[in-house]
């Protein structure tokens, strides 16, 4: 056993490979982010205000925000719209990725469908939101024309002044623009699973359904976690679709927290301090929810790898020692 495992630790390479990220992060995002978050504890209101100071009672802005009805409403809307869009989105994406990666049932035109499903994500969300606003316009508009001419309704329906229809439409747009993206992520995750496992399953005679639940899903766990976390973060940060669909209306029913924050910070009275406090609360909410997800889907794999590595190191040391002894 003449393995020349050097006694040096590889740990420094971990630091070296993280340098580009850290440097870029320090230069371009840390200052802006931290600066804006800090404003949550100040009286900074108004454009280019350079004379702000920290509040005597640092949590005043948080108190104001918690008493803000629109903010509370926006949190509810955001979660509601996210659930309404994410449930069908992940179901559809899983289903499609199962169909497209099925070894036994090749679907013809797979490539075509895969491209087409991702296409709504290619156009800017803004254009799609504007398009849907036009689709549902009143009293003349494509959807209303169809409803009336097919006799579903006697009169056109003003979708855009009623709350629930507006929330459903926003959730649907969100679904339409992102399901293809989620599908691609899942497909690439499935393709990362070793085909050998599938072959073994096939030999064991498991059917497609079993294979999917027993092999694909468990092996997809890390990528699923990614999907859940990024959808959660993206969904709770949802901005352009509700903003451009109907400016957060009607009656604040599609006002998401991000739209609320942007409204506070970038227009009207430039309430930077409140906006910063609101984003910290949103940040906390996202972190808590993500932590729960992490915990629910905690990386048993990673824990296993950790353990293996530790064992390997121990073994290596042992070997080295033995090697020394031999010499």
């Amino acid at each position: 056993m003449k393995t020349k495992l050097k006694g040096v630790s590889y740990a420094k390479w971990g630091y070296i490979f993280s340098i580009p990220f850290i440097v870029t992060f320090l230069i371009f995002s840390l200052y802006p982010t931290f600066y804006t978050l800090l404003l949550g504890f100040t009286d900074c209101v108004g454009l280019n205000n350079t004379e702000w100071k920290f509040l005597e009672n640092p949590f005043d802005n948080f108190k104001t925000i918690f008493e803000n009805n629109s903010f509370k409403k926006s949190l509810k809307n955001t979660v509601l719209i996210w659930v309404l869009n994410f449930t069908p989105q992940i179901t559809m994406a899983l289903l499609l990725s199962a169909i497209f990666t099925s070894h036994r049932n090749e679907i013809k035109g797979k490539g075509f469908f895969k491209v087409v499903f991702y296409m709504p994500n290619i156009i800017t969300a803004a254009s799609v939101a504007v398009l849907f606003n036009a689709l549902f316009s009143y009293p003349i508009g494509p959807v209303n024309d169809l409803l009336v001419s097919f006799g579903f309704r006697d009169e056109p329906y003003n979708f855009l002044v009623y709350k629930t229809p507006s929330q459903l439409i926003v959730a649907f747009i969100q679904f339409l623009t992102w399901y293809g993206n989620t599908m691609i992520v899942l497909i690439s995750g499935i393709l990362g699973i070793s085909p050998d496992i599938y072959e073994a399953a096939e030999i064991d005679g498991s059917n497609g359904w079993q294979t999917f639940w027993k092999i694909t899903v468990p092996n997809l766990k890390t990528v699923l976690l990614y999907t859940l976390i990024t959808s959660l973060v993206g969904g709770l940060n949802m901005y352009d679709i509700p903003k451009l669909f109907n400016k957060g209306g009607p009656d604040g029913s599609t006002l998401t927290t991000s739209v609320f924050i942007a409204n506070q910070a970038f227009s009207g009275r430039y309430l930077y301090n409140r906006a910063a406090a609101a984003s910290m609360i949103l940040f906390a909410l996202i972190s808590i929810l993500s932590a729960i997800l992490f915990w629910l889907m905690r990386d048993k794999d990673e824990a296993r790898i950790e353990k293996e590595k530790r064992d390997a190191r121990r073994a290596a040391k042992k070997q080295q020692k033995e090697a020394i002894k031999w010499q």
Partner: peptide, 26 residues
């Protein structure tokens, strides 16, 4: 529009308008 579409009373609409402005612009 909430009022004219029959979803709210006039008083309610005015009260909600005041809340919305106060929430949005302080």
């Amino acid at each position: 529009r909430q009022y004219t579409s029959g979803q709210k009373t006039k008083e309610q609409a005015i009260a909600d308008f005041k809340t919305a402005v106060s929430d949005d612009l302080a």
